[in-house]
């Protein structure tokens, strides 16, 4: 089951470095804004998560275009597996520098797994090491961003109380993973286009933001939760419309099939 194409790099309109910039800088700035500004602005954590998810989705499309030999979802799951370990580690020892420590830890773990995948397992994907670093970093920032939406801060104790012990961390795990793995998994094929894949990442990130906003109402009260949900829904609506536009642009034709035929018509 070789998903994702016949080998060779993916064509990109936006160069990888631009997206790394958007993901890493946007992610970290959003997380710090959500942390330091009052609770009403905790939606910046969701925006950080969207930046990180778009970055992760772009890294997935670059590495999975070579053909992983297995399904694309695996790489999203390893991203969040590495991400969750690195995120909680960084927050636990980093204090106010927590997200940065997490980010660096994720890069180190990602580099190790990338080197192992190429050197020991022998996957032979030239950008594997780099992509693993990027995917681990994006997964970490997505987790911290969504946790900051729910907790209002990235302080270790608060995150443990409001995100980990309540079980929302499992929800963040799957939503962040979905955001990173689903865009390329849904759009892969010879007609895959970067803008269509990435806008789907924005859409998935916005959905995650809406759900994280709902979860934040327990801790942050209805006001900030409402703001987060409203911002999330707005981004979702815009991104979904844009995605639908790209689908219609790239499709050969969009036709209605009508209703299912009735029994009499079939005879």
């Amino acid at each position: 089951m070789s998903a994702g194409g016949d080998g060779g790099g993916a064509k990109s309109n936006l160069p990888p470095n631009t997206i790394i910039g958007i993901g890493a800088a946007g992610g970290l700035i959003g997380i710090y804004l959500a942390h330091f500004l009052p609770a009403t602005f905790s939606f910046f954590g969701g925006i950080a998560a969207i930046c990180a998810i778009v970055w992760g989705a772009d890294a997935v499309r670059r590495v999975a275009s070579y053909g992983l030999g297995t399904g694309v979802p695996s790489i999203g799951m390893i991203a969040l597996g590495m991400g969750i370990v690195a995120a909680l580690f960084g927050l636990s020892i980093g204090g106010v520098a927590g997200p940065i420590v997490s980010f660096i830890t994720a890069a180190v773990i990602g580099a190790i797994i990338g080197v192992l995948a190429n050197k020991v397992i022998g996957m032979g994907i030239p950008i594997m090491e780099r992509a693993m670093v990027e995917i681990a970093g994006a997964g970490t920032l997505a987790i911290i961003g969504l946790s900051t939406v729910i907790a209002g801060t990235f302080e270790y104790g608060a995150v443990l109380d409001t995100v980990v012990s309540t079980g929302f961390i499992a929800m963040i795990f799957i939503m962040g993973g979905m955001g990173i793995l689903h865009p390329f998994n849904a759009n892969l094929g010879p007609d895959e286009k970067q803008d269509r894949t990435l806008i789907l990442g924005v859409e998935k990130g916005a959905l995650a933001m809406v759900i994280a906003g709902l979860a934040s109402s327990i801790n942050e009260g209805l006001g900030p939760a409402f703001v987060t949900i409203l911002v999330g829904l707005t981004i979702w609506y815009l991104a979904f419309n844009k995605y639908f536009g790209f689908v219609k642009r790239d499709a050969y034709a969009v036709v209605g099939t009508g209703l299912l035929p009735s029994e009499e018509e079939l005879q």
Partner: peptide, 23 residues
């Protein structure tokens, strides 16, 4: 808190070790 933290670390380590052999 501790059970949640330990469980999510176990899940994270589990996923990393499930994906490596799948490649």
């Amino acid at each position: 808190n501790m059970i949640g933290l330990v469980a999510i670390f176990a899940v994270g380590i589990f996923f990393v070790n499930a994906v490596i052999p799948s490649y």
